[in-house]
Measured scan of single mutants.
Amino acid sequence: DYYKILGIPSGANEDEIKKAYRKMALKYHPDKNKEPNAEEKFKEIAEAYDVLSDPKKRGLYD
C-alpha cells in the first residue's frame, strides 16, 4: 500500500505527501543508510510518491 509505505493517511493532501516523501527518502537514501534493504525501500518510496503525487495516477490507484 503506497500510503502505508509513506506513513500517511489515504486522505493526505499534496503537501503531506511531499513532506512524507522527503522524510522517508532521506531516511532510506542508499548514500545515507547502509542497511542492505535501503536501496529497495528507497525505490518503493519513490514509486509510491510517483503515483500519489500525480492526481491521475492517484485516482486510478484509489
Rank of each mutant, 00 (worst) to 15 (best):
I5L: 08
P30D: 13
D50A: 08
P9S: 07
D62E: 05
V51F: 04
E40C: 11
P9I: 07
K57R: 06
K4Q: 10
P9H: 11
P36I: 13
F42P: 04
A20M: 04
Y28P: 01
Y28G: 08
A46W: 08
G11Q: 03
S10F: 15
P30R: 12
Y49M: 12
K27M: 12
K56T: 10
A48V: 02
E47G: 03
Y28D: 04
S53F: 01
E35V: 10
I8C: 12
E44D: 10
A20K: 03
L60T: 13
N33A: 14
L52K: 01
K19T: 13
G7M: 07
E44Q: 12
I5V: 10
N13I: 03
S10Q: 13
D62L: 06
G59T: 09
P55V: 07
R22Q: 15
P55C: 09
R22N: 12
K34S: 13
M24Q: 08
Y61Q: 10
K43E: 12
A25M: 10
L6Q: 01
Y3P: 03
I17M: 06
D62V: 08
I17N: 00
N13L: 04
D50T: 09
A12N: 01
E16I: 04
E16T: 09
R22E: 15
I45W: 00
K27A: 15
E35N: 15
K43M: 12
M24K: 13
Y3E: 03
N33M: 13
A48W: 00
K4C: 10
E35R: 10
S10G: 08
K23H: 14
A12Q: 02
G59N: 12
F42H: 14
Y2G: 02
D31Q: 11
Y2E: 04
A25D: 06
E14F: 07
A46H: 04
N37E: 08
K43N: 07
I8G: 00
A38R: 11
I17Y: 00
I5Q: 06
H29E: 13
Y49V: 05
E47W: 06
E39F: 09
A38F: 04
Y2S: 02
K32D: 03
K23F: 07
I45P: 00
A46F: 04
S53A: 11
D15W: 04
K27I: 14
K34E: 15
K41A: 09
K57D: 04
S10W: 06
E39M: 11
A46N: 13
K57T: 02
V51L: 09
Y3S: 02
K19W: 14
K32R: 11
D62P: 15
P36H: 10
P55Y: 03
E44G: 13
I45S: 04
E35A: 05
A48N: 00
E16F: 02
A20H: 06
K43I: 12
E39L: 15
